[in-house]
Amino acid sequence: MNSTNRALNRLLLLIVGLLLVAVGAAAATAVLLPGVRDGWKASAGPVQRQVESWLQATPLGTTGVSWIMPAVLVLIVLAVILLLAFALRQGRGRTGTVVDEAVGEHGQTVISSKVAEEAIQDALSARPEFVASHVSTYRVKRTPTLKVSVTCRRGVSPADASAIVESSLKALDQLLGRELPALVQISGGFRARVSGSTRLQ
């Protein structure tokens, strides 16, 4: 429902995972396999000298330090900003309006998502089949979409639960004069397990 970029999530996991596998395997083989170990040791000196010569070849003004370090610092700051943006973007996509359209030349009709959410929640909270219900509105492909999650009491038939929610959605359709796309999520969960089972047959 939300606008989380799932491909990006998986891409990050894949890249970090492959990097960790590569680093871990390289470290282990460098110690375990004599061939790799000797090669690593032989190249250690030249690599160190090469890096030292780079650091000396890139002085930052007259301060005596290389500008490579501050450059690395800038890259690190950029990476941190990107990762923060990535982490904070998860789970977004809620919207506050379900209808926003211009009718004729007299103005605009805006319906807040609270109207739809509270209408459905009101209808559902009175039902004995559910221990809890929650309605929220998300923007899916630029279309406001309702998400109705209900937690069923133990033993309630999902067909009945779905019929109850659908009838309240249809009542809302009548009220608004249009059909909003909707997702109904029927779940059990902890509260359903500890609450009493249904007495409806």
Binding site: L13, V21, G24, A27, V31, L32, R37, A44
Partner: peptide
């Protein structure tokens, strides 16, 4: 750079742990 001079047991154990974590992430990704 001087990793091979470090105590072998610690390096191997740490490497193995890192590989396992990496594999878990790859599985989660795919």
């Amino acid at each position: 750079v001087n990793l091979p001079d470090a105590p072998a047991a610690i390096v191997v154990a740490a490497g193995a742990v890192v590989v396992v974590i990496g594999l878990v992430l790859v599985v989660l990704a795919l």
